[in-house]
Every structure is written in C-alpha cells, then in structure tokens.
C-alpha cells in the first residue's frame, strides 16, 4: 500500500478526516521550509502538500503567486525542491508528501527522469495544475512505473460525464476545487459541499480532499464533515508573512484539532 493510501486507511479506522497543510518550497528560504515540513508533521498534519515555485502560476491567487516568487528569489529549482524532500524523508518516513505545481519546470527537467528522482527523494504524489486528462499521457506511464500517485483536480464545472474521464488514471486521492476561482479567495459553504461531495462519492472510491479557500479550523471541520481531507494553503502563507513559522505551526495545530473534532463513522 502506498503511503497516501495507508494514511487514509488508518484514518478511516480512527474515524476522522485528514488535514493537508501546504508549504511553498523555499518561501522565504530553504531552512524555513524544512522547519515547517518537520513542524507540521509534528503538529497534526496527516499529509503535506509542497508547492513547486513557478513564475506563472495561472490558477493561483495573489498569496501563492507571491510565495512562489519569494521561493524563486531564494533560489528554488525543481532539483532544489527534491533535495528538500530528501532531507525531510531522512527523519520522517511516514508522512506522505505531495508536490503541487505547473508542467513547464517538469518538462524542462525531463518527465521520465523527474519521476525517477521524485520517487527516490520520497515524493508520494503529484498535482500538476495545468495538465488535464487530455494531455496527461505524457506522464502517466512514468508516474505509474515509479509508484507516484497522480492527483487530479476536479472543479464544480466538471460534468458527470467528464468526471469519469478525470478519475481514470487518478490515484491517491482526488482534489476537489470547491469554488470556481483561484486559490485563497472565496470559501465553499457547507451547503455547497453537501451538494457537491455526494456527486463525487458516487463516481469514485478514492478519498476526497477539498481545497481552495479553506482558512479556519471551523472551515476545515466543515470540510471533513463532508469530505475526507481539508487542504489549507493561502491562510498559512499569510500567517508566515505576517507573523512567523512558529505562528504557522500554531495554526496547523488548531486546524488539526478542528479536523479531529469531527467524528466520522469508523470503517
């Protein structure tokens, strides 16, 4: 069983949802990112999503855009991100890590080599924002050969007919973009989730994570009442900018407690 599948299986037994916090690699420097990864794992993160900085993150709002540019300024490269993962893995072999980013740096690295190196470094899954199923054949075989989960975004605009196509070749979990919009802006309501999540459940057995606009422990709790995981990104980056990495870890703890406060039916 993959690390990601293992975590979700364990949580089903425990009867609770997962918290997936986000770290933009090298924002504002490598040491902070490493400390955040380690600190998040120690403060209740079940899986961690790592942003791979890109100059032109088309689906991201101002917060993640700025974080990516700070990361690039601090010298982030794809190779550097994998190095960060490798160092984290040296002391943590159980927390799944998912890389999120855009296609061009991966193309530039070379898709087959990237999949080999990412798997060796200890990456568990990939979210490539600008790679819809129509173009995904360029990475599916290499990802599979290296046991990397390909995690797909599903949007409110994704029709039932299309849902099937998007889920084919998806593994690990599905990432439900709860709003039509960019990251860090609006928040989906409980009513939205109550309407949308059952539609996904009917189409897949994969765990469902919800992101885009989840900011507070209360919102994270609302999310896991309907779905299997809450992804929190922009809110944590805002905290890092305005306060400190200690404050981020404090928030992660609170988010993790929020998620743990919702009991689900144990499997």
């Amino acid at each position: 069983m993959s690390r990601i599948a293992g975590v979700f299986a364990g949580l089903r037994k425990e009867g609770r949802g997962a918290l997936i916090p986000f770290v933009e690699a090298f924002d504002p420097d490598r040491a902070t990112s490493l400390a955040l990864l380690q600190g998040m794992a120690a403060n209740g993160a079940d899986i961690i999503e790592i942003g791979m900085p890109f100059t032109d993150p088309m689906a991201d709002g101002p917060t993640i855009q700025a974080a990516g540019l700070r990361g690039l300024k601090a010298g982030a490269t794809l190779r550097g991100v994998l190095g960060l993962v490798r160092e984290f893995r040296a002391t943590d072999s159980h927390t799944p890590l998912v890389l999120m980013g855009y296609l061009n740096p991966i193309l530039s690295y070379g898709v087959p080599q990237f999949c080999v190196d990412a798997a060796q470094a200890g990456v568990d899954g990939l979210i490539i924002v600008d790679l819809p199923p129509e173009e995904a054949d360029l990475i599916l075989d290499d990802a599979k050969a290296n046991a990397l989960d390909i995690i797909r975004l599903i949007a409110p605009t994704t029709s039932d007919a299309r849902l099937k196509q998007v889920l084919e070749g998806s593994s690990g979990f599905v990432y439900y973009v709860s709003i039509t919009g960019i990251t860090g802006t609006r928040t989906a309501s409980a009513a939205d989730l109550a309407r949308d999540i059952p539609r996904l459940r009917a189409a897949t057995d994969l765990p469902i994570a919800v992101g885009f606009g989840v900011r507070t422990p209360e919102q994270a709790a609302t999310v896991v009442a309907h779905a299997d995981a809450a992804i929190v990104a922009s809110a944590l980056i805002d905290t890092l900018c305005k306060e400190s990495k200690e404050a981020v870890l404090r928030d992660v703890r609170a988010l993790a407690d929020g998620v743990r406060g919702v009991r689900k039916q144990a499997a």
Binding site: A59, V129, L153, A155, T158, V177, T180
Partner: peptide, 20 residues
C-alpha cells in the same frame, strides 16, 4: 483533433477551464 500542430499546441489548462 487534439489541437496540435505537430507537437505544438494542445490544451494545458486547469480543470476548471477544461469544460469551457
């Protein structure tokens, strides 16, 4: 049919935009 000119072109957009 895939919107390609040789190896160029295609549709590399986020899922939210794909249906549109």
């Amino acid at each position: 049919a895939r919107g390609r000119f040789g190896e160029f072109g295609g549709r590399y957009v986020a899922e939210t935009l794909m249906p549109l």
